[in-house]
Design a binder for these strands. Structure first.
Ligand SMILES: NC(=O)c1ccc[n+]([C@@H]2O[C@H](COP(=O)([O-])OP(=O)(O)OC[C@H]3O[C@@H](n4cnc5c(N)ncnc54)[C@H](O)[C@@H]3O)[C@@H](O)[C@H]2O)c1
Ligand SMILES: NC(=O)c1ccc[n+]([C@@H]2O[C@H](COP(=O)([O-])OP(=O)(O)OC[C@H]3O[C@@H](n4cnc5c(N)ncnc54)[C@H](O)[C@@H]3O)[C@@H](O)[C@H]2O)c1
Lengths: 216, 216
DNA sequence: CAGCTATTGATATATTTTTCACAATAATTC
DNA sequence: GAATTATTGTGAAAAATATATCAATAGCTG
């Protein structure tokens, strides 16, 4: 099947948009509504849907509830996914404390660090020594991990994660991680994002307006 | 000129990679070195460079120092850029405390919130009432702002930012912000990123390995 | 310093992604 | 219930992006 990462990212956005539309009282939506809410074209929405065999009613649009369910199913979001964090510093703590993931079916179950002053093994979401990472991940069948350690440690820690059986890594360290073939890595590089904004704000300042609105 | 956002993002990555290569003692690099470090092809590197008129020596590659300087120049990074944050909660605080931006020419100069218990006007990086946002931004000529308020407040706050003259917004709220034509918005949606990982880890589990390594 | 070799830079080719266009058709109107 | 209309679903076209190719050439070798 032809389907790429961008398309999946959009599916997630459609799901978010649907949540908001539903809150506004929408029972059915047209591709155009979703397009507006997600900032894409209606063709794009329909194309994405056709790629996954999502169908609506000609002239009747899509039923919000059915659509959400179908997208959640595709994204594997009808079950709760357990996620761990390595590196409980600024970013790691912010994520650990964030309540918003749970409603989306994502549960942070544990944090790991090498700094003993960070350990809090008794809390509902325990912070444990890195030594215990492998056994924890194996016995709890964790597949997704967030990497939030300093850049110098990032490569080393990513290897520990992969060795323990982690298959998806969300990396905050400002280096480009290269994983094994069956490991998916998503790099969040905030400095690069800011640099990008700076660039486009600068060129817009100097010359023609850039008209750019982007994401990911 | 034909140049897109992805290309600028790669330029930033090349710059990061160069920093690391330089630390390893590299004085000159070939497109292949950079390609490896940044996780792209060497054609891609040369194509990107040619877009910006960056030239090297046939058979001699590129001099690291010159290259870094040239890229910094293109990205507008030879001066320090001032950035403000609105919403000093989990994420806002993590960013405020992060020391890594400064070395990259990005300085967080102030934070803003509506919760009086957050105010800290006396600190080197003050946390001020949102009321003071506009005058601060105007008098300090701030062009870039980070938005880290709850989703329900995000749209409203983005309008305040734009009205005050902010031209680039890094948005952490899980909604797709739509800006004015001359405002660049970069949306960081961590839940979407995690959902994406979950999806690809799931499909890899079920069928063929996905072989996906991606970013932004 | 002539010949050889590796690398750039530019052009051509391939691939991916998005948009367009429109027939099929379900809802609505008269 | 026939005519009208709005919207989907999809194949085709276009645009954007990435890769491959290769002549030109700077540096190296002997
Ligand atoms: N904080 C931010 O706003 C921000 C912004 C951009 C990028 N980043 C990146 O995110 C990462 C984390 O940043 P931070 O500000 O949270 O850093 P931090 O220094 O606050 O926290 C890092 C944590 O990782 C732990 N750690 C160090 N080595 C470890 C190892 N080998 N195994 C396990 N834990 C280890 C430390 O004990 C510490 O608790 C860094 O790579 C940073 O460059 C952070
Ligand atoms: N913390 C995370 O790990 C995380 C993860 C994903 C997404 N996010 C998103 O990032 C945003 C911030 O998350 P957080 O965890 O830091 O939230 P938070 O609740 O910890 O902090 C939000 C801050 O914004 C302030 N605020 C609220 N309304 C405001 C307004 N109108 N003007 C100015 N300030 C206002 C609050 O006083 C608070 O200090 C949210 O949209 C959240 O969905 C956060």
């Amino acid at each position: 099947m032809v389907m790429n990462r961008k398309c999946i990212l959009r599916l997630s956005r459609y799901k978010n948009a649907l949540k908001r539309l539903k809150a506004l009282g929408f029972v059915k939506v047209f591709s155009g509504n979703l397009a507006d809410a997600a900032g894409v074209t209606s063709s794009q929405v329909r194309k994405d849907f056709s790629l996954f065999g999502i169908t609506g009613n000609r002239r009747g649009g899509y039923k919000v509830d059915e659509l959400v369910l179908r997208i959640r199913e595709i994204l594997g979001k009808n079950e709760i996914h357990k996620v761990v964090i390595i590196g409980i510093g600024n970013i790691g703590n912010a994520l650990l404390r964030y309540k918003g993931f749970e409603t989306g079916g994502i549960r942070i179950v544990a944090g790991f660090d090498i700094d003993p002053s960070r350990y809090q093994p008794e809390r509902p979401v325990p912070i444990l020594p890195l030594d215990e990472f492998r056994s924890y991940v194996e016995s709890n069948e964790i597949k997704i991990g967030i990497l939030a350690v300093p850049d110098v440690a990032a490569h080393h820690v990513s290897e520990i994660m992969i060795a323990a059986g982690i298959k998806g890594i969300l990396n905050f360290a400002p280096i480009q991680l290269r994983g094994a073939d069956d490991v998916v890595i998503s790099n969040i590089n905030l400095e690069v994002e800011l640099e990008n904004l700076i660039y486009f704000v600068n060129v817009a300042d100097k010359s023609v307006p850039a008209l750019v609105t982007e994401d990911d």
